[in-house]
Amino acid sequence: MMREKKITRTKGIILILTGSILWGVSGTVAQYVFQEQHVSVEWLTAVRLLISGMLLLGFSYRKEKRNVWAIWKDKKDARSLTVFSIIGMVPLQYSFLAGIQHGNAATATVLQFLGPAVITCYLAIHSKRVPTLKESCVVFLAVLGTFLLVTHGDIHRLSISGWALFWGLFSAVALAFYTLQPHVLLAKWGANIVVGWGMLVGGLAFSFIHPPWEIEGHWSFSTYAGVVFIILFGTLIAFYFYLESLRYLSASETSSLSSAEPLSAAFLSVIWLGVTFDFVQWIGALFIISTIFILSAKKKDGKNVKEMGC
Rank of each mutant, 00 (worst) to 15 (best):
R48K: 04
L180G: 02
F96A: 02
F221I: 09
K298E: 13
H183D: 13
T18G: 06
T10E: 08
G53E: 07
C121S: 13
C121R: 03
E244W: 02
F233T: 10
W72A: 08
T223M: 13
N67K: 12
T291C: 11
F277H: 01
A124D: 05
L295Q: 12
F59I: 14
E214Q: 15
L114V: 08
E36S: 07
V138R: 08
K298Q: 12
L246G: 01
I231L: 07
A105R: 02
G190L: 11
K299S: 11
V39T: 14
K298G: 09
M2V: 12
F229T: 08
W197I: 03
W23T: 01
E214I: 15
R62D: 05
L50G: 13
V280A: 14
H218M: 12
E64G: 01
L56G: 07
R79M: 13
L263P: 03
L149F: 08
R79P: 00
W72N: 09
I71A: 08
L81C: 07
T151L: 05
V130Q: 10
K188N: 10
Y32N: 14
A174E: 06
T107G: 04
S85Y: 00
F147V: 09
S80L: 09
P212D: 11
V41T: 15
H183P: 04
S161C: 08
A238P: 06
L56I: 12
S222W: 15
V47C: 06
K11E: 02
G27K: 04
A225I: 09
H156G: 15
S171V: 05
W69V: 13
G234Q: 04
L175A: 04
V138D: 06
V139S: 05
I100N: 09
W23E: 09
H183G: 12
S95C: 10
P91A: 06
L57R: 05
G115L: 03
S40I: 09
L141P: 03
I193Q: 11
H38T: 14
L149Y: 07
Q181V: 13
N192W: 12
I86L: 11
A108Y: 03
W219V: 15
Y248L: 01
S40V: 03
G115P: 05
L17K: 00
Y122F: 15
F267C: 12
R157C: 04
K134P: 06
L249P: 00
C310V: 14
S220V: 15
G203A: 09
W197M: 03
A70L: 11
S258H: 12
H152D: 15
V25I: 15
V25C: 05
N304R: 13
L158R: 08
L81N: 02
L186K: 15
Y122C: 02
A187T: 12
L246W: 01
E64Y: 12
G24I: 00
E214V: 15
R48P: 01
R62P: 02
P116V: 02
E135T: 05
V29Y: 06
L295E: 06
A108E: 11
E64P: 05
S20F: 00
P212L: 10
R9Y: 06
